[in-house]
Every structure is written in structure tokens, then in C-alpha cells.
Design a binder for these strands. Structure first.
Length: 811
RNA sequence: GCCGGUGUGAUGGAAUUGGUAGACGUGACGGACUCAAAAUCCGUUGGGCUAAUCCCCCGUGUGGGUUCGAGUCCCACCACCGGCACCA
């Protein structure tokens, strides 16, 4: 009997589908387990091995959880709005909905070919109006709570996508998706107030079981820093509020810097206070036109203009100090104004050197501050030149000065975040329409909820426009409407939502995917929340993962969802690289197509290999020989079926190995150590070949193998008659039980050390006492040789492992 | 610059968290089967010394340290990878 995966795999896929073997139960006495993987963007290229790694991993977990007696929800869907589909549609003159539909068909069949145990009846598709109705609904709730607002501001504009980008979508000054330059553009945009949730997004991480690097990256991105706001005066009589994390260095402030966009600069210009107005406006203009890339360029020289006509007044000592504008101060962070302390800040120091500003040391303990800034914020520095702070450490000076500022009413403690509000509109066609209407009388009016979903209109051309408007803006029939509030003629919002909208709540829809009354019923939300285990890519840490936590917290606040966090546990997989360790790419020609692997070796081999490839969290390179090795292993499992002897009892010869394996594979799957779980199974098969195996031994092996190679496991389970004996498929069986006492072999090998150096080993019966082990150990010739010139002063025993004789030279 | 991670045979990677380093797989070499090849099976495979698969010495990026014992802990350094970056 040959291992014919080509017929076995479709056979079982059909049976699982017909029997709905993996349907999550809405009502069940079993404990629930909700396992989630990131739903794919259904691109034209289809599924790639990068998808297969996390999907296979969570499929193994889900299958294992079912065997452990859980009611498992393991769903799949499609995040189908987005630019590639739209661009493909433009190029080929096909409606994006049609492209999406075809791509999804292809994806689904690929997922099924890999034998994933998704509950396909719960599939969601973000472009389905029945789905995006609720995406729009959530937007309306955000608007009603004041968390969605439209404002004009400089935004990131991708020159190639012809579309605005969120801060999270700009990576090193270029578009995260297409790599084109990003420029600043003044535009009116819908914004979501994620900043309102900044503190909670940080705080609530503490209680979550997320891998540490995810937490760190999110905290880093939100970028909380505590300092003080201090009010300076200007010689023109204005208040200039600055933010600083080093209020202790207030006495060392020798000049001030405002961002070029600062309001005060505008008002001084208008009031004609600045003698060098031309120079100032020229600088403002130059700064405004700079691209993100130019603004963030490394090691670039500081630039700026000194304001001629207005000075700042240091509130602690009344000193008049010059004011500059410079683009090293960002208008979007803090108050857009700083006090500059060149002695204790690298950037200020560099600027001061270039513009000839005074450098006054206020913290001693560093090198000469005329040569470099001393920035240590710990106990190494002592305050000097700072009146009542003198003699304190920096650590003590910060609260002291903060308290003083508060008492004088010129400052207070302040927390700032790097996180900015989320730019939420996109000037493209293939996205959710934003359900808002502009009325000249009433302003922005939300569409009444009973008019949802607001469908995407049919348009003649999906082409993005150069004027920065969405293609939908050309559809005057759709755009022109009446105000839901006063009935006057009004215009619809023509921008659409970003791709991240639909994915910010999709995991909720899986709980109750066909509900047309709510995004999901209360009961379903109660039953399944939160997601117990969510695996996904690190690249989404500050995008999808952060956005969806924000939306979920909002939904929690308005009483829609029962938990304050969406995901209890988050893990992340490493990338699959091409053979030789290079990133897979079409241009390198090293892309592995899962379909080819399945055709040549079968889905079970593909699954087993991708789990065996290496540490799940780390990047791993594809190896065709590695695939062959896994195929060899499965062949050996298959061929072993002909060597099975005896009945359902487990053989003594294999007992220790088998029970250890049951324990180890069980633990390894929970810990995502899939590679060692498979290694354990391989070693067990080697043992079975060496010792022979009974039907009982073999059945346990098949069950342990079933999460990894489910088709083969089912087929052998059936052919060998287990299905009949146990009444059901392998995937319906409980995980084999191990007996702790049987995991211990009858004899153990004890390592013998003399003074910490390995000198031999000895076999003793398990459970031998120390005296017996010592006696046996001393008999070993290589040990005796080294023991001979020594007086033993101490013996260290590690039970079941090792004995170590410590001696000193005789005499 | 700041934060985090990693470094182990020819190679992907193991090592019960301080207790026999190199599990398992790949590759290579030798053998069996075969007219032959593929497939399969058996054996060997960190380096040195050696007639020897005896013994001994060395060996987990580098240099120190703690310990009876260190891949694992501590200190200093080097290399690579990732995130953030003029965030006051």
C-alpha cells in the first residue's frame, strides 16, 4: 500500500467539509478557545509560504485544543479593500469587486488544500456591504463621541498612491506600501482621536500575554514622556509655553526655539514686530515644503533664524534670551516651543555652537560643557548655578523645581506622547465610504444609521486624481444629496476609509458573522470574547494591532463589547526566507509557491516541514532538502503501519519513549516549539522501527501526528481500524494520556564527574540510592583512574543525572 | 544616538532553564540491495592526538569573573539583525 497523498488529502478535506468537523458551536458545555490568525489580503498572487507559517501553526494549536476538549473558534476571512486590487482593476478594466471575488475563490481553495481546520461558514469579507455596514456604524459612533473629526493640517502624501497616509504608514520617509517618497501636503482630513486612548493603550499592556517585543514596540511608538510645561514671557508681553523633560535645567536656558509654524511667529509677523520678517517668512516657506525624508535626514546641519525684535524672558531669573525658529522643533509635539539648554542637550548644544549662543553649565559631573553636552539624567550630576537647586542631584531637582513652578503658577507637570491622531481618510475608490454629509448650514452631519450601509457607487474610472480628490468625487449623482438634518442640498464625503478600518474589528464579526441587527449579538460577544490567542506579523504591531486595540477600547466604552482588550495573547512568527537566506521576491526568482510543494510532496509534508523549519519566532530559510526530509519522515510513518504487531496494549520497550513524547509534544505545541515537537515524533518513529511497535503504540503516534499531518493521520486511523474501535475520526479523539511514572526509563545513565570534569558514565536502575550510584561510579575504570590520587571531600548528586566527586590531592 | 534581540558542527537548529553540548533534520563519506540509477535500509560524521570507534586535550562570537560544575549567571568588548529616532 503506497502513501498516495494526492488522493488521500482531497478525500479528507471533503469529509471534514461535509461533516462540518471544525464548526464552532454557539452553544456548548465545553470551555471555549478562540484562536485567530491575521486574515489575508486576497492578492492576485494567491497564498504564499509567508501565510502558511502562521496559519499552519495556529491550525496545529486549534486542532490540538479540540483534542483537549475545547469548543474552538478558528475562523478565516479576507481583508479585501485596498490599493493593489484597485490598481489591478484600473489596469485591466475589471471592477475591483470582481477582482476581489476571484482572488478570494483562489485563496479559499488554497487554504482548503492545506487542510486548515477553519470554520469556513464564518468567513468574513471586509468589502461585503453586509460587513462594511458595521465598519461605517462604528465610525458613526466615533463621530458621535467626538472621536472622529475633520481638520485641515499638513499630512503625509504618497506621490505614487496619490493618497494620504497615516503616520504609521510612513517608514523612513517613504510609503510603507510602495516605497515612493512622501511629501507634506495641506489637506482637510478625517482624523480619529487615538491620542485620547494613549495612556490606556500603554497601561493595559501590562496585563496582556503579548510577547515582550510587541509590548516594547507599542510603548515605544506611543512614546510617553513626563516633564513639565513652563510659561516664559516674551518682551512683547505674550506667554510662550514650552515643554521640557528637564525642568531641572531651567537655569541653564540660554535661548528659546519655536517651530516655524508656531502661532506666535505668525502674530508677531502680522504685528510687524520682527525687523527680519523677510528672512523669517523665507525660512517658514522652506520648512513647509520639506519632505518627510528631508526633515528626518540623518546628521543634517541645524538651521534656523533668530527673531529680531522679540526676546524671551526666563521666569526663574528674569533674563532676556533670544528666540529662534528652527525646524528641529516640531509643531506637532509638545507645545511646538522649547527652552534650549545647550549645556545639557545634544541638539541644543549643536545649535548653540552654530549660532553662537551662550552655554551655561547647571549640572556638574560631566566633561567641559563647552566641548560637549552633559545629558545624564541620573544621580551622577549635581546641580550648580541654579540658586535653590544647587547641590541636589538631578533626580531630586526635577520634583523640587516642578513643585516650585506650580507654587509660582508658571508651570506644572505634563505628560506628552509621540502618538498622533490617526489620519483616517483616503483619496481612493476601493474602500468603505465615510458615511458623512456636508451641509453648509449644519456642518458635518452623520448619515442616519438606518441608511447604512452607504454603498460604494459605480464609477466610470477608478483612477486616482492628481488634484488629491477621490475618484468618487466625480460621481455627482451620488455626491449631491440632502442634509439628513435640515433637508437642504448637501454633499457627501467622497474620501474612503483606510484599509485598516475593516481589520480593526473583524475578529468580532467572526463571533456572529451573519447578524444583520448588530455587529455581533451580545450573547456571541459574551461567549467568545476575548480572542484567546492571536498570532500575526511584527509589521502590524504599530498599525493593525494598535488600531484594533483602540477601536476595541472605544467599543468597550460605549458598551458594545464585554472586554477592554480584544486579544488575551499575542505571538508573532518569523519570516520565511528563500533558499540561501535572502528575502523571497519575484526579482530574485526564489519565491516558493505552496501549490507546487503540495503537488510534489503533499500538504502534510508542506505543513510538517514549515513547522519543522526552525524556531517559530525567528526567520528561517527555505530548503528543498528539508522538505524532502519531512516527506521521508511521513513515508516512514506510513510504512510503519505494515510493521505493527500486537493489540491495543502499549509495549514495554517503548513505554518510556512514548510517554515522554506524549508529554513533550503536548507542552511544545502550547509553547509554539513546533520544531522540537516534530523532532520528538521523529525520534519516536526511530524507536518504533528499532523496537517494533504495537497497535496501541502506533495509534498514539497517529494522534500526536494528527495536528501536523492531519490527512495522513486520518487515513491511517481509518485503515488501521482505529476509527471503528474508537468511534470517530482522529481529529475527534482526545489527546493521548501520559503516565508520569512511565516517562522514567527502567535504567538511567548517570554522568560521573571528578572535580567537575566528565570522566565517564554508568548505567544504574532508576531510583538507585546515592550510595549505590557512588559505588557503581567508583568502579568505572576511567573514573577510578582520576579518583585514585584524591581524597574525596564532597560528593554532589543530581538525581537521575549526575554525580560529581570533589577531592583534594592525597597527603 | 536610544531600546530590544541574536551569535552553538559543513548546514537548519536542539539542550528538561546551572548538570553528559551538538537531540532531530539536511548534507557528506562508507556499506547493503540493483546490470545500473533513483528510492530504501545499515553505519560513520565538532577539532586535535592516535594503529584505535581506547584514553587524553581543546571546543557554544572575544576577554575576564562567579561556581564542585557555565552555551545557560555576572562584567567588559566585538559582530550581525530588528524597532524608534531633531519627540525637547
Amino acid at each position: 500500500m503506497k502513501y498516495d497523498f494526492g488522493s488521500i488529502e482531497p478525500k479528507w478535506q471533503k469529509i471534514w467539509k461535509e461533516k462540518k468537523s471544525f464548526a464552532a458551536q454557539d452553544h456548548s458545555d465545553k470551555p471555549k478557545f478562540y484562536g485567530l490568525v491575521e486574515f489575508p489580503y486576497p492578492s492576485g498572487q494567491g497564498l504564499h509560504v509567508g501565510h502558511a507559517r502562521p496559519y499552519t501553526a495556529m491550525d496545529v494549536v486549534a486542532r490540538k485544543k479540540r483534542m483537549d476538549g475545547y469548543n474552538v473558534l478558528f475562523p478565516m476571512g479576507y481583508d479585501a479593500f485596498g490599493l493593489p486590487t484597485e490598481n489591478y482593476a484600473i489596469k485591466n478594466h475589471i471592477h475591483p469587486a470582481k477582482v476581489t471575488h476571484d482572488n478570494i475563490q483562489n485563496f479559499r481553495s488554497q487554504l482548503q488544500m492545506l487542510g486548515y481546520s477553519f470554520d469556513y461558514d464564518r468567513e468574513v469579507n471586509t468589502t461585503d456591504p453586509a460587513y462594511y455596514k458595521w465598519t461605517q456604524w462604528i465610525f458613526l459612533q466615533l463621530f458621535k463621541k467626538g472621536l472622529a473629526y475633520k481638520t485641515t493640517m499638513p499630512v503625509n502624501w504618497c506621490t505614487s498612491c496619490k493618497c494620504v497616509l497615516a503616520n504609521e504608514e510612513v517608514v523612513e520617509g517613504v510609503c510603507e506600501r510602495c516605497g515612493s517618497p512622501v511629501i507634506r501636503k495641506e489637506k482637510s482630513q478625517w482624523m480619529l482621536k487615538i491620542t485620547e486612548y494613549a495612556q490606556r493603550l500603554i497601561d493595559d499592556l501590562d496585563d496582556l500575554d503579548f510577547i515582550e517585543r510587541v509590548k516594547i514596540q507599542q510603548r515605544n511608538w506611543i512614546g510617553r514622556s513626563t516633564g513639565a510645561e513652563v510659561t516664559f514671557k516674551s518682551t512683547a508681553g505674550d506667554d510662550i509655553v514650552v515643554f521640557t523633560t528637564r525642568p531641572d535645567t531651567l537655569f541653564g536656558a540660554t535661548y528659546m526655539v519655536l517651530s516655524p509654524e508656531h502661532e506666535l511667529v505668525k502674530s508677531w509677523l502680522e504685528a510687524g514686530r520682527l525687523a527680519n520678517a523677510d528672512e523669517v517668512t523665507a525660512y517658514q516657506k522652506a520648512a513647509a515644503s520639506k519632505s518627510d525624508l528631508e526633515r528626518t535626514e540623518l546628521n543634517k546641519e541645524k538651521t534656523g533664524v533668530r527673531l529680531d525684535g522679540v526676546k524671551g524672558i526666563d521666569p526663574v531669573n528674569g533674563r532676556e534670551i533670544p528666540i529662534f525658529i528652527s525646524d528641529y522643533v516640531l509643531s506637532t509635539y509638545g507645545t511646538g516651543a522649547i527652552m534650549a539648554v545647550p549645556a545639557h542637550d545634544d541638539r541644543d548644544w549643536e545649535f548653540a555652537k552654530k549660532f553662537g549662543c551662550e552655554i551655561i553649565e547647571v549640572v556638574s559631573g560631566g566633561e567641559d560643557v563647552q566641548k560637549e553636552a552633559f545629558t545624564a539624567k541620573d544621580d551622577t550630576g549635581i546641580m550648580v548655578n541654579s540658586e535653590f537647586l544647587n547641590g541636589m542631584t538631578v533626580k531630586d531637582a526635577i520634583p523640587a523645581i516642578t513643585k516650585w513652578l506650580e507654587e509660582k503658577g508658571i508651570g506644572h507637570e505634563q505628560v506628552n506622547y509621540k502618538l498622533r491622531d490617526w489620519v483616517f481618510s483616503r483619496q481612493r475608490y476601493w474602500g468603505e465610504p465615510i458615511p458623512m454629509v456636508w451641509c453648509d448650514k449644519c456642518g458635518w452631519v452623520p448619515l442616519p444609521e438606518d441608511q447604512l450601509p452607504l454603498l460604494l457607487p459605480e464609477v466610470a474610472s477608478y483612477e486616482p486624481t492628481d488634484d488629491g480628490e477621490s475618484p468618487i468625487s466625480k460621481m455627482t449623482d451620488w455626491v449631491n444629496t440632502t442634509c439628513p438634518c435640515c433637508g437642504a442640498s448637501a454633499r457627501r464625503e467622497t474620501d474612503t476609509m483606510p484599509q485598516w478600518a475593516g481589520s480593526s474589528w473583524y475578529f468580532l464579526r467572526y463571533m456572529d458573522p451573519h447578524n444583520d441587527k448588530a455587529l455581533a449579538s451580545k450573547e456571541a460577544l459574551e461567549q467568545w470574547s476575548p480572542v484567546d490567542w492571536y498570532n500575526g506579523g511584527m509589521e502590524h504591531t504599530t498599525l493593525h494591532l494598535l488600531y484594533s486595540r483602540f477601536w476595541h477600547k472605544f467599543l468597550y466604552d460605549i458598551g458594545v463589547v464585554p472586554t477592554k482588550e480584544p486579544y488575551a495573547k499575542r505571538t508573532s512568527h518569523g519570516m520565511i526566507l528563500g533558499e540561501g537566506g535572502e528575502k523571497m521576491s519575484k526579482s530574485r526568482g526564489n519565491v516558493i509557491n505552496p501549490n507546487d510543494v503540495i503537488a510534489a510532496y503533499g500538504a502534510d509534508t508542506m505543513r510538517t516541514y514549515i513547522m519543522f523549519i526552525g524556531d517559530f519566532e525567528k526567520a528561517a530559510s527555505w530548503s528543498d532538502n528539508g522538505v524532502k526530509g519531512c516527506k521521508r519522515f511521513l513515508d516512514r510513518v506510513w510504512n510503519l503501519s505494515e510493521k505493527v504487531t500486537g493489540g491495543m496494549e502499549q509495549s514495554e520497550a517503548n513505554a518510556a519513549a512514548l510517554h515522554k513524547a506524549i508529554k513533550k509534544v503536548n507542552e511544545d505545541i502550547d509553547a509554539m516549539k513546533f520544531n522540537t515537537a516534530i523532532a520528538t515524533l521523529m525520534a519516536l518513529v526511530n524507536d518504533f522501527y528499532a523496537n517494533g511497535c504495537t497497535k496501541g503504540d502506533y495509534g498514539a503516534l497517529l494522534l500526536m501526528l494528527s495536528p501536523f499531518a492531519p490527512h495522513m493521520a486520518e487515513e491511517l486511523w481509518e485503515q488501521m481500524g482505529y476509527a471503528k474501535d474508537h468511534g470517530g475520526m482522529a481529529c475527534e479523539q482526545p489527546w493521548p494520556v501520559y503516565d508520569e511514572s512511565k516517562t522514567v526509563a527502567q535504567t538511567v545513565t548517570i554522568a560521573i564527574q571528578v572535580s567537575g570534569k566528565l570522566r565517564g558514565t554508568v548505567e544504574v536502575p532508576a531510583g538507585s540510592d546515592n550510595a549505590a550510584i557512588e559505588h557503581a561510579a567508583k568502579e568505572v575504570p576511567t573514573v577510578a583512574k582520576f579518583l585514585e590520587p584524591l581524597d574525596i571531600v564532597k560528593v554532589i548528586h543530581v538525581p537521575g543525572k549526575l554525580v560529581n566527586f570533589i577531592g583534594k590531592p592525597k597527603g
